[in-house]
Computed example of a mutant assay.
Amino acid sequence: MANQDQHDGATGSPQLPPAAPSAAETAAPPAFAGAARRRFATKGAATLGAILTVKSQPGMACDICYSPSGFASGNLNSHTPQSAACSGLSPGYWKMHPESWHNGCLSTTKFQKKFTVSTGCQFFGTEMMTLLDHQEYDQDNVAMHIIAAYQNALAGKTSFLPPSKVQAIWNEYWTTGGSGRGYYTPMAGKKWYGADITAYLRGTMD
């Protein structure tokens, strides 16, 4: 009986266990193959790399870690962000923490002491802290974000955007028309108006 159990009933030949599948047969198929892999490499990798560099650097507290010209040109392949200080704080933070302001620009400092404005305009004679609240004459909240960006620069939180560059952004914005009309030129052929400036600066903040 034992011998019969070990043989096929029709032929009497012994039954062998099925062969184990080869490594090639059990390996999972590649995510991309042939032409598909090449298309991904040429079309998708550059864009994906840029997104990961801007959005996913460990320890980054902000979304934009590039100078205005680098960001406007889309030249995001620089190695600078990997070593750049990128932890800017918002206008709300600086409003709630006047004790943290740099001694070179206190919350009571008048706006015209650091930024170009015309004598007699509503910005002239106004303290920095006041401008961290929305003012009707600060269309698009450009001054509000400029002040926060300036404090971030003074504190070394945005090494790609030094204090002089923050001042240059506002000064060009003001001399080209100011609130509601002015613009900043991050690179030849491009103009950032108030909302664009604010969007860029907000991106450099947590």
Rank of each mutant, 00 (worst) to 15 (best):
M1L: 12
M1Y: 09
Q4L: 11
Q4T: 08
Q6Y: 07
D8M: 04
G9H: 15
G9R: 15
A10P: 04
T11S: 14
S13F: 11
S13L: 13
S13V: 11
Q15S: 13
P18L: 07
A20V: 06
A20C: 06
P21D: 09
P21C: 13
A23Q: 05
A24H: 13
A27N: 11
P30Y: 08
P30I: 05
A31L: 15
F32T: 09
F32A: 12
G34V: 04
A35K: 13
A35H: 12
A35R: 07
A36W: 01
R37H: 09
R38K: 10
R39E: 11
R39A: 11
F40L: 15
F40A: 15
F40H: 15
A41Q: 14
T42I: 08
T42G: 07
A46L: 10
T47G: 04
I51M: 06
L52H: 07
L52C: 02
T53G: 02
T53F: 01
Q57R: 12
A61S: 07
A61L: 12
C62G: 09
C62I: 03
C62A: 14
I64G: 00
Y66D: 07
S67F: 03
P68L: 01
P68M: 00
S69T: 05
S69Q: 11
G70A: 04
F71C: 02
G74S: 01
H79G: 09
H79V: 12
Q82T: 14
S83C: 01
A84M: 05
C86Y: 02
C86A: 14
S87M: 06
G92S: 10
G92W: 03
G92L: 09
K95T: 03
M96D: 14
M96E: 15
M96L: 14
H97Y: 00
H97G: 08
H97T: 12
S100M: 01
W101L: 10
N103Y: 06
N103P: 11
N103D: 12
C105D: 10
L106H: 05
S107I: 08
T109E: 05
F111T: 10
F111M: 08
K114Q: 12
K114P: 02
F115Y: 05
T116S: 14
V117C: 15
C121S: 14
Q122D: 10
Q122N: 12
F124C: 12
E127K: 09
E127C: 00
T130Y: 10
T130F: 04
T130C: 05
L132W: 04
H134Y: 09
D138W: 07
N141S: 14
A143C: 06
A149P: 08
Y150E: 04
Q151S: 00
A153I: 08
A153F: 13
L154P: 00
L154H: 03
L161G: 03
P163K: 05
K165I: 13
K165S: 11
A168E: 11
I169L: 06
I169W: 08
Y173M: 01
W174M: 06
W174H: 15
T176M: 09
T176K: 04
T176L: 03
G178P: 01
S179M: 13
S179P: 13
G180D: 00
R181K: 13
R181Q: 12
G182E: 01
G182T: 00
G182R: 00
G182A: 01
Y183R: 06
A188L: 13
G189K: 02
D196A: 02
I197W: 00
M205L: 02
